[in-house]
């Protein structure tokens, strides 16, 4: 059987990162505007209109696609900002918009019927019934699966939907169903759903204390590190907490998702695109990760049956992993 093409979808939080991704072999680059319309609304990140135009031109000149994440949920008072972002996406020649909000999909489908729609991971669609709802109602052509399904469940989804399925291959790991997590909102008032931010930097405090380096989020102690430990960013689901007098990573370790060893399985399952997380990361990260995944995907497309993970790939990826470690996440049942 001929292997279907698998697109490599890479992140870019800046124009240099976009160019780097293109140069290192990304098929698609996903980006966001400099505002709350996307789920990586961080200071100093993302694209203003000028950078967006240049980025689209750069990618299109090299026959690559640019996808725009508009994957937060607008509210009554800021609705017009999101629809304006969709209008701009159409105007700039963006290849697809990645949406989570059904109301916004209605607007996009009605106003720009030629604009290709992807369902964001923030849409929390974990079954073919949910995905098919978005397909029938708004004509979405691709869905990004939340990081909750085991491989057999991914196969089941693919077998029952005409929608292309994109899965996360590498990067920061949300341990919660995306789009259904209000932990950051609970602690800081800023939510991934409405503000496009999780554990935002302006609420973070690092403090050297006699007990060690303490990291806090809006005053809440997320972790404390000994001298020999590398203090990580206080993403609140990846801190150490006490449960019944036991102190441990109660929700998840600071670790990255890395599914490279499953690539042949994902290909056989019919996955159409692999997404790399990390629009907030540097162009160097984008270069490193894109290069490795390009090589791996090319190898799978050439001969999935004889695919082996190169030790050099893993070494490269671990260097840029959160906590310098990786997991298969929910793809591997015992993780659950």
């Amino acid at each position: 059987m001929t292997q279907q093409k698998i697109e490599l979808v890479c992140p870019a939080g800046s124009l240099p990162a976009l160019k780097t991704a293109v140069d290192h072999g990304a098929d698609c680059i996903y980006v966001g505007f400099k505002d709350a319309t996307n789920a990586r609304n961080f200071t100093g990140l993302n694209f203003d209109p000028k950078a967006m135009r240049e980025g689209v031109n750069y990618a299109h000149a090299r026959r690559r696609k640019v996808l725009l994440a508009l994957n937060t949920y607008p509210q009554a008072h800021n609705w017009a900002d999101w629809t304006a972002a969709i209008d701009r996406a159409a105007e700039f020649g963006i290849d697809a918009v990645i949406l989570a909000d059904p109301g916004l999909m209605t607007y996009a489908a009605k106003t720009h019927p030629q604009l290709r729609l992807h369902l964001s991971v923030q849409g929390s669609a974990t079954s073919y019934e949910a995905i098919n709802y978005y397909h029938e109602r708004f004509g979405i052509q691709r869905a990004v699966l939340p990081r909750v399904l085991a491989l057999a469940q991914v196969e089941q989804v693919i077998a029952n939907t005409p929608v292309e399925i994109e899965v996360f291959g590498f990067g920061g790991l949300c341990v919660m169903v995306e789009g259904r997590c209000a932990l950051s909102a609970y602690a800081t008032g800023e939510s991934p759903n409405c503000n496009g931010a999780c554990s935002p930097g302006k609420h973070v405090r690092w403090e050297q204390t006699p007990k060690g380096m303490e990291t806090r989020l809006n005053g809440i102690l997320i972790d404390r590190f000994g001298d020999a430990e590398r203090a990580g960013y206080p993403t609140l689901c990846k801190g150490r907490f006490e449960v019944n007098d036991e102190t441990y990573y109660a929700l998840e370790e600071p670790t990255s998702l890395n599914t490279i060893e499953m690539l042949p399985d994902l290909a056989r399952a019919g996955v159409r695109a692999i997404k790399i997380e990390g629009r907030q990361r540097s162009p160097a990260y984008v270069a490193q990760v894109t290069k490795v995944w390009r090589a791996a995907i090319d190898r799978v497309l050439a001969d999935a049956d004889h695919f082996t993970v190169q030790p050099a790939w893993m070494a490269e990826l671990d260097k840029v992993s959160e906590g310098r470690s990786h997991t298969l996440g929910a793809y591997y049942r015992p993780w659950k």
Binding site: R147, V148, L149, V175, M176, V177, R180, C181, A182, L183, Y186, C237, A250, L251, E252, A330, W335, K336
Partner: peptide, 8 residues
């Protein structure tokens, strides 16, 4: 506040 595939 959140749901996960993992049982905490």
């Amino acid at each position: 506040l959140a749901h996960s595939a993992r049982c905490f």
